[in-house]
Design a protein around this nucleic acid. Structure first.
Lengths: 142, 142
DNA sequence: ACACAAAAATGGAATTATTCTAATTCCAAA
DNA sequence: TTTGGAATTAGAATAATTCCATTTTTGTGT
């Protein structure tokens, strides 16, 4: 984890009155480290390479804290276990039903704007979630 | 339930090799009857007014069948229990965090097209899910 | 350094939506 | 009317997540 990320973590936690504990730092580091979309179990496995005794409950606590601070996004697709992703830019998700992989789909600000403006009067969105299900070309190894 | 809906149910089930049983018909009727977004428990309660002995497992089975046939949409917001909705037109969902209510948001075909065309080359979507979280005016009683 | 209080971590139990299973019942066709 | 597959049923099983009670850690003031 670089200095910028570490600073971001500390200040984001502080702004919510939370402390940068070893566990939180390590969970954050782990999520930053590999840009896939791991669920809590998978994160537990990865974090344990550095903190062999950390518990699943703590991983959940840390993830909650990170999501609350806006450092990490929680991705819920269908009814499958929550996945976590450090990509904070506006983006959608694409689940390939051939490979099962989740892909980040960057979103043009214009499309985002058209989405938000498609809301009827009286509705004000704080947030939105967009996901696609479909298939990807064989070529796509991203 | 009117004749058109009944016909639609029968043919949609038949096309998947399924039978229009009393339970399936009643679950479908119930979902059509009130255009909110009930979950399986709530649907069980409503269906039992007509079929007092139906079980929750059967409600789940029926819902599965209806979703498989494309007669009903399954709506997953966050990690809350699945909700079910008979609105088959392209639409998004809006969850008001003041009232907890779910609203259908009709979608302009142009916006839908712009969404689908925002996918990178190599990605082909069969389906998408769009949901908003935010708040509604006091006026909104829909 | 030291003690204290608050925050966080921990393991295991509890919860809850959903699925599975095995037994029964229903229904359509022969 | 028998028969076989499909559907229903109740209850057990599963799995993700949350809760709880206890212990550990951390930051602060002395």
């Amino acid at each position: 984890m670089n200095d910028k990320d570490r600073k971001g973590l500390h200040s984001a936690l502080k702004s919510k009155g939370l402390r940068p504990t070893r566990q939180r730092t390590c969970v954050y580091e782990t999520i930053l480290g590999k840009k896939d979309h791991p669920n809590a179990d998978e994160i537990l496995l990865r974090v344990r390479r550095n903190l062999p005794t950390i518990s699943l409950a703590t991983v959940y606590n840390c993830l909650d804290a990170l999501v609350d601070c806006g450092l990490v996004r929680q991705v819920n697709l269908d009814r499958s276990p929550s996945r976590f992703c450090p990509n904070l830019t506006p983006h959608a998700h694409f689940k390939c039903n051939r490979t099962g992989k989740i892909h980040d789909i960057p979103m043009d600000p214009k499309v985002v704007a058209s989405l938000e403006s498609s809301l009827p009067k009286g509705f004000t969105a704080e947030n939105f979630d967009l996901s696609f299900i479909g298939s990807t070309d064989k070529k796509n190894h991203s």
